[in-house]
Design a binder for these strands. Sequence first.
DNA 1: ATAATATTTCAAGAATCGTTGAAATGAAAG
DNA 2: CTTTCATTTCAACGATTCTTGAAATATTAT
Lengths: 104, 104
Amino acid sequence: MIEAEAAILFGALANADRLKVIRTLVEAGPDGMNAGEIAQRIGASPSRASFHLAALAEAKLVIKERRSRSLIYRVNFPRVGGLVSFLLEDCCNGSPSLKKCCNL
Amino acid sequence: MIEAEAAILFGALANADRLKVIRTLVEAGPDGMNAGEIAQRIGASPSRASFHLAALAEAKLVIKERRSRSLIYRVNFPRVGGLVSFLLEDCCNGSPSLKKCCNL
DNA sequence: ATAATATTTCAAGAATCGTTGAAATGAAAG
DNA sequence: CTTTCATTTCAACGATTCTTGAAATATTAT
């Protein structure tokens, strides 16, 4: 991943509501969760949740799929993992000092 | 680390120039590098580099110290590591799926 | 076709961020 | 104490992001 792309992904994570969405979707597991329930869980209005979900989907950090009337969202683990790898390996050169700091 | 703080740190990384700074400082190692040389390495004007360095220092992702006329900067590995841990453990619940995606 | 449900889109305004070049600050040398 | 060097600060502007509530869209059921 190149810096410009990583910067966009970090920007997508630079919001507490969106981090709550990620956490909520990780807990929801592979079945995902629909937009309305996500909004309730993170304590946001439908339109605010939709705005944040769109930002995460645009960054491909979550995947969106329609199931009947609902739109369900799931975490895109390879994408999140790619960002972690960028930070650890590309940006920080695989630094052992850094890895020790996150117990890796 | 709480979500609000992590969001601020992700925001500090949400810029290609600032990611270049981090990479440059990791390569520079424990001795750090002064502001002028950082500016040259990342191809930014002194004032732009100063702006980005201030953002990183404000987030405590880098540490600033005066050495004679120069201000030298170093990466704050525990802080960067804390953010990686937040993402892997707190936000993503230590998900094994995610860890596989970044070869951990 | 009409109604009900789930979600997104839109407009408007506030807030924050990024860039530029000029001026100001801090530290050291002559 | 004046000059020089290194860096930051500032003002101004444009660009982007966030929030709110109302309106629009898509899907399903009657």
